[in-house]
């Protein structure tokens, strides 16, 4: 499969065949190769080791490598599929695939559930949602009284936590998202539809026949 693979495999640990990645995701082979151009740029921004560490991820998101952000951290943790503290190219493509406009709706619901289930217990607990609300208030510089935060939590859990056990399970989340489809807006990136035109240079590095 040409020099794309042999070169990429040496320079990018965990690099996976773009043809296989395309077959496992919502992307075409060309789109996987275009994503590789983006991946190369992010993974070499701080340490040129062919992997994306948290600092590089934050730098790409915020243009600031020192900015700590609970939500960006959570996204990083979920993209770090192999739990090695870094994102390799396979992780990157498979995780971004969920954000493709054509990705299955159920995959988007599952991923969004994991985003909010901060400690990975299989439930979104009230304390986790409160932690996220407080982090968001800090991030945005907004001030809300604790009792206002509690009112927001009461109202949210009254609606989402159907069995009223103080936590939201996957089935409750699925129903809640169906009633509030705007919650999945963050799970779709229209940019991914145009990835080959955003990174046209991928054609110079490809030897895959499809292109």
């Amino acid at each position: 499969m040409g020099c794309f693979h042999s070169t990429a495999s040496k320079q990018f640990p965990g690099h996976e065949d773009p043809v296989i990645l395309a077959s496992q995701t919502a992307f075409s082979v060309s789109e996987v190769e275009a994503l590789f151009e983006l991946y190369k740029s992010i993974s070499s921004s701080v340490i040129d080791d062919g992997l994306i560490n948290k600092e590089e991820f934050q730098l790409a998101l915020f243009k600031n490598r020192k900015k700590e952000n609970l939500f960006a951290n959570r996204i990083f943790e979920l993209f770090d599929v192999k739990k090695k503290g870094v994102i390799d190219f396979g992780d990157f493509v498979k995780s971004l695939s969920v954000f493709h406009p054509n990705a299955p709706h159920e995959d988007k619901i599952d991923f969004s559930f994991k985003l909010y289930d901060l400690d990975g217990t299989g439930f979104i607990e009230r304390q986790e949602v409160k932690q996220m609300l407080i982090a968001l208030l800090c991030e945005s510089g907004m001030k809300l009284a604790d009792e206002t935060v509690e009112i927001i939590l009461d109202k949210t859990f009254l609606e989402a936590d159907v069995n009223q056990d103080g936590k939201i399970d996957k089935s409750e989340w699925q129903n809640f998202v169906r009633q509030n489809p705007s919650l999945l807006k963050i799970m779709t990136l229209p940019y991914l539809r145009d990835i080959t035109t955003t990174f046209p240079s991928f054609v110079f590095h490809s030897e895959v026949d499809e292109i």
């Binding site: 790409a60 998101l61 939500f71 996220m132 919650l183 990136l189």
Partner: peptide, 25 residues
């Protein structure tokens, strides 16, 4: 105006907005 905590979080948090990854090229 936000009585739905998740709507508040998803619409306000910059950390959940991955579009900036593509603007950084």
């Amino acid at each position: 105006p936000f009585y739905n905590a998740f709507e508040f979080i998803s619409s306000m948090s910059s950390g959940f907005d991955l579009s900036s990854l593509f603007e950084s090229k």
